[in-house]
């Protein structure tokens, strides 16, 4: 199945004639592109697939690699929801040609946790209210994980600069900053985040009365 040809067609062309009282004019579609081999490491797993030479990384990740955690918010680099790490650097996957990431090491939100041990920022995002609707969360998390791996004790200004490319409409950012600080505390203290599959509360406890 061929997919995602011509994803780059700008919206402006598609709706370009809106409102003008003339017959709609649209650019003809670009000719189909060639298939090329794409080899990359996504969340520590080798991926080797044939993609189209003009495929956008976001589409490849979502539709071919199965990283549905990488979100599509705007397709034009304005919202940051599609952020991933390419060789450790935060990048907007909606503005990245997949072929430009040949042989790259890519980390998406699915790759942050160590098995069932969450990354500290994942845990504190939940605990400190960094995530409300959660749609922008994956983008924030990968960007913040990059920040924390470089600088485990960032100050307010450093945090703000790191996440300035990410939009959140729910939280007003304040509890996101709180989450980063709490994650930083965990990292600095060296505590481990516990395994989420461990047994939780017993519905049938004994009497603990003293």
């Amino acid at each position: 199945m061929i997919s995602n040809r011509h994803h780059g067609e700008p919206n402006a062309q598609r709706m370009g004639s809106i409102g003008r009282n003339v017959v709609q004019f649209r650019l003809p579609m670009l000719p189909p592109s060639d298939g090329v081999e794409w080899n990359a490491k996504v969340n520590d797993e080798e991926v080797s697939i044939i993609i189209e030479s003009n495929a956008i990384l976001l589409d490849v990740l979502r539709d071919r690699v199965g990283s549905l955690g990488t979100k599509r918010g705007c397709d034009m680099g304005t919202c940051g929801c599609c952020s991933v790490l390419i060789n450790g650097e935060p990048r907007l996957s909606c503005l990245t040609l997949a072929v430009d990431t040949e042989q790259a090491d890519i980390t998406t939100v699915e790759g942050l946790a160590d098995g069932h041990h969450l990354h500290p920022i994942q845990q504190t995002f939940a605990e400190c209210g960094g995530s409300q609707c959660g749609f922008c969360t994956p983008g924030f998390l990968v960007v913040i994980s990059a920040l924390l791996s470089e600088n485990s004790k960032p100050n307010d200004q450093e945090i703000k600069q790191a996440i300035e490319g990410n939009l959140c409409r729910c939280t007003g950012f304040q509890q996101i900053v709180d989450s980063v600080k709490a994650a930083s505390d965990i990292l600095v203290s060296g505590q481990a985040v516990s395994d989420s599959t461990l047994s939780k509360s017993d519905p049938h406890p004994g009497f603990g009365g003293d």
């Binding site: 549905l68 699915e110 995002f125 995530s131 959660g134 994956p138």
Partner: peptide
């Protein structure tokens, strides 16, 4: 913490397009 937050922070929360 929101009871569904673990889904959101691991990228496993499925929205419309997912």
């Amino acid at each position: 913490a929101l009871v569904d937050s673990s889904w959101k922070v691991t990228g496993q929360a499925h929205y419309g397009d997912d």
